[in-house]
Design a protein around this nucleic acid. Structure first.
Length: 494
RNA sequence: GGCGCUAUGGUGCAACGGUUAGCACGCGGCCCUUUCAAGGCUGAAAUACGGGUUCGAUUCCCGUUAGCGCUACCA
């Protein structure tokens, strides 16, 4: 009944690029907040910039959110399909006197990239739009006659908000506290462009009112937009929501994250083999803290502990090594069953998946994954260095052969080992262990020499799980034949 | 330039007037050891600077500096 009391938040990306780390973090905070409060999360695509819109990017954003495990309760809504709503609001504001018609020509900035930068030091400081505080547009003083004249001329009209010259505007921010800004510092911003399309300031407010959004959680780069929006809310007879501006995520060079920082789209992290939950955990701790030293926090607990009060006010730098650390932690600490599906996906991608592993050999598969995972860093590791666990089609790493097949007695010993193992009545860890060590004693070598050489023979790598457990997982037949196959190769190496 | 926000080791966070300033990543060392990880122990490493307020400041106030944001008919 009182579901209307529950918070409603939204994630509102604009399809001008892929879903990047910063956006993902904003989406995550919105989602954690909604789940924690038992509220709703809406997804809204802010595609009012016809110039830079890339409709084909929308799907990528949705995919990124899905990979992250962030599900929304309503939407996606597209602002491009709600244009009438914004025009009505703009007209209403015009009629009430809160806004005025502007006939200035849209500033000629078509050249997109910043012109030569006004870097001349001693400029006359009286020219140019940003040279001084002439924030009020001249059109606000147009007489009725002047206005009519321009209309007659057919000059396209934009609608600007008539910002009061005095007084202050206040709003609440759950992160930055109660804020108050001088109206004299706010320019007469555009609400509706001369082409009839609303600007961000208008559409965001109209939608947030219409969608009954209670908390606006977004990047701190919008902090200075909040007062303008609060002005619109009140002019529209609505109460502003509670804002929560979260600090920005910067690249290692302390500048805003962008393409030049390499992989910044969440999709690239999926491709690299990160687990969504590890990524979430990492992201959650960028600009938020549960209040204590906890770091490995599973998503369910993140939801329980999330609070806007824990959001910090300082920008955070994206630390890739720490992200990788979280990934290894999840790869090895979470119950195996949880990562088995990801490994399955990975092996399918590599073309070495066998359906039996999801059926009759399910337990075997989980065991193999469990054996391998302590040394994995990315999901891809299951199809690369530990490939030999799943297919006979694997390479014997040259470096591994060079390192562990130096001794010229090895070919002979490997042959004897294969025979001894083959003769084993029982195939288990201890039996293999005893057989190998007995041979080492008989041959007068350290067990380590044989162990390392055998590891290379059966999995092709110097870096792999403990040998005897590996033997058990691989099975007698495979182990024996791989060792025999290695004998001549070891002879060459030595 | 104007307005605003921020400021704890290299990085991410704790300490919300009184701690030998804590944890984690990364880096070094040691242990463990069957390779490599993981794990355990351990070392180096921080309150930007200057003024206040206070018995006492990382913490509150002011200034400086630095970084970031906004300053578009982009979001």
């Amino acid at each position: 009944m009182n579901s209307s009391q529950k918070p409603r938040v939204r994630f509102a990306p604009s399809p001008t690029g892929y879903l990047h780390v910063g956006g993902a973090r904003t989406a995550l905070f919105n989602w954690l907040f909604a789940r924690h409060e038992g509220g709703q999360l809406l997804l809204r695509i802010e595609d009012t910039d016809v110039e830079r819109n890339r409709p084909e990017l929308v799907q990528g954003i949705l995919d990124g959110l899905k990979w992250l495990g962030i599900e929304w309760d309503e939407g996606p809504f597209f602002q491009s399909q709600r244009l009438a709503l914004y025009r009505v609001a703009a007209e209403k504001l015009l009629a009430s006197g809160a806004a005025f018609a502007c006939y200035c020509k849209a500033s000629a900035y078509a050249g997109a990239d910043s012109a030569p930068e006004e870097d001349q030091e001693g400029e006359g400081d009286d020219e140019g739009p940003k040279s001084h505080k002439n924030l009020a547009c001249g059109c606000r003083n147009l007489s009725e006659a002047e206005r009519a004249a321009r209309e007659k001329e057919g000059i396209a009209r934009a609608i600007r908000f008539l910002v009061p010259k005095t007084g202050t505007t206040r709003f609440d921010d759950a992160v930055f506290g109660a804020r108050e800004v001088q109206n004299s510092e706010i320019e007469d911003f555009v609400l509706l462009r001369s082409n009839g399309i609303p600007t961000y300031q208008l559409s965001v407010v109209v939608d947030d009112i219409d969608m009954r959004i209670t908390h606006v959680i977004r990047g701190a780069d919008h902090l200075s937009n909040a007062p303008k929006q609060a002005l619109i809310y009140r002019a529209l007879d609505a109460e502003p929501p509670i804002f929560a501006h979260v600090p920005l995520i910067l690249g290692p060079d302390r500048t805003r994250l962008s393409k030049r920082h390499g992989a910044t789209s969440v999709g690239s992290y999926a491709d690299e083999g990160f687990l969504p939950e590890a990524f979430r955990n990492f992201l959650a701790l960028l600009g938020w803290s549960p209040g204590d030293d906890a770091e490995f926090i599973r998503t369910s607990e993140l939801i329980q502990r999330f609070s806007l009060a824990g959001v910090s006010r300082t920008n955070a730098i994206f630390d890739r090594p720490k992200l990788e650390w979280f990934n290894t932690q999840y790869l090895q600490k979470v119950p195996v069953e949880e990562i088995v599906p990801y490994v399955e996906q990975e092996l399918k991608r590599a073309g070495i998946w066998q359906d039996a592993w999801a059926g009759a050999e399910r337990a075997w598969f989980a065991h193999a994954v469990d054996l391998i995972r302590p040394r994995t860093r990315f999901l891809g590791d299951f199809a690369t260095w530990s490939r030999a666990f799943f297919t006979d089609d694997f390479e014997l790493e040259p470096e591994a052969r060079a390192k562990f097949w130096k001794d010229e007695r090895l070919p002979g010993m490997l042959g004897k080992l294969a025979d001894a193992l083959d003769a084993l009545p029982e195939w288990n860890h201890d039996a293999c262990d005893v057989a190998l060590r007995a041979l080492a004693v008989a041959e007068g070598v350290k067990a380590g020499l044989l162990i390392n050489a055998t590891r290379v023979a059966i999995v092709g790598r110097a870096v792999a799980p403990p040998l005897f457990e590996t033997m058990v997982v691989l099975g007698k037949e495979t182990v024996v034949s791989r060792i025999r196959r290695a004998v001549p190769l070891a002879a060459n190496a030595a």
